[in-house]
């Protein structure tokens, strides 16, 4: 008996909350959802484990990490204001920081005190051949040295020697090698950003690698 009333309460409040949500968002009622009600189990929704659609560049009091009850939170600059006029991307902060710097839309200091100090830029591309069918990786030193100092990466994260560094995507995704920055503060690894690094097409005669054994004695 009690359980029945409980469910009654739950259904009542569900209807109420639906009305509330609709009133807040002022959305037209979704006919398809109503038609499907009672047929599709709530356990089988799309994107079950994905986070909710992200509100891009939320102001600090609404971003879920800053405490709106704290006075200082309301003094902080909302990111959208700072990003006005900067080139956009589809990931991270949705700002193309490298392009913004190269276009002169940003003037970040290279020295704490002296705004006139110019960075030590090295223009050298490192090509890393990828074993699998993905395009090869081109690492451009130029945008990296415009922001960073050699000592930030060498020799602790990357040994400055050819073929001395073992890099793979799992290591990057777990926050080592390139992943020390990429995926934390610089552009993250998403399906939209693969080609930013994997940018050099394979030669026309490229074939998937085979082991010595299978080359000598191919399967019949």
């Amino acid at each position: 008996m009690k359980t029945k009333h409980f469910f009654l309460g739950v259904t009542m409040s569900m209807v109420m909350s639906l009305v509330l949500v609709n009133a807040e968002a002022a959305q037209p009622p979704l006919k398809e959802v109503k038609a499907a009600k009672g047929k599709v189990s709530g356990a089988n929704v799309f994107n079950r484990l994905l986070k909710k659609d992200k509100q891009r560049n939320a102001p600090p009091p609404e971003d879920g990490i800053h405490d709106a009850a704290n006075d200082g939170t309301h003094v902080l600059q909302p990111p959208k204001i700072a990003y006005d006029g900067l080139p956009t991307t589809e990931f991270g902060n949705y700002v193309d920081w490298v392009k913004a710097l190269q276009d002169g839309l940003l003037r970040p200091r290279y020295d704490r005190f002296d705004p006139t100090v110019e960075p030590l830029v090295m223009d050298l591309d490192i090509v890393r051949e990828v074993k699998a069918s993905m395009p090869d990786v081109v690492f451009p030193h130029k945008p990296h040295t415009q922001w960073l100092h050699c000592s930030n990466c060498h020799p602790k994260i990357f040994i400055p020697q050819r073929n001395a560094n073992v890099i793979n995507m799992s290591a990057i995704l777990l926050g080592t090698k390139c992943g020390v920055c990429h995926g934390k503060v610089s552009f993250p690894i998403t399906t939209k950003s693969c080609t930013k690094c994997h940018s050099k097409p394979k030669p026309a005669d490229w074939k998937p690698p085979k082991s010595e054994a299978s080359l000598k004695n191919p399967w019949r």
């Binding site: 986070k51 909710k52 992200k54 509100q55 560049n57 939320a58 609404e62 971003d63 879920g64 990490i65 800053h66 990111p79 991270g92 902060n93 934390k184 503060v185 993250p188």
Partner: peptide, 9 residues
């Protein structure tokens, strides 16, 4: 809801 803070905060 899930935090929607700025990337890299």
């Amino acid at each position: 809801q899930d935090a929607q803070a700025e990337y890299a905060d």
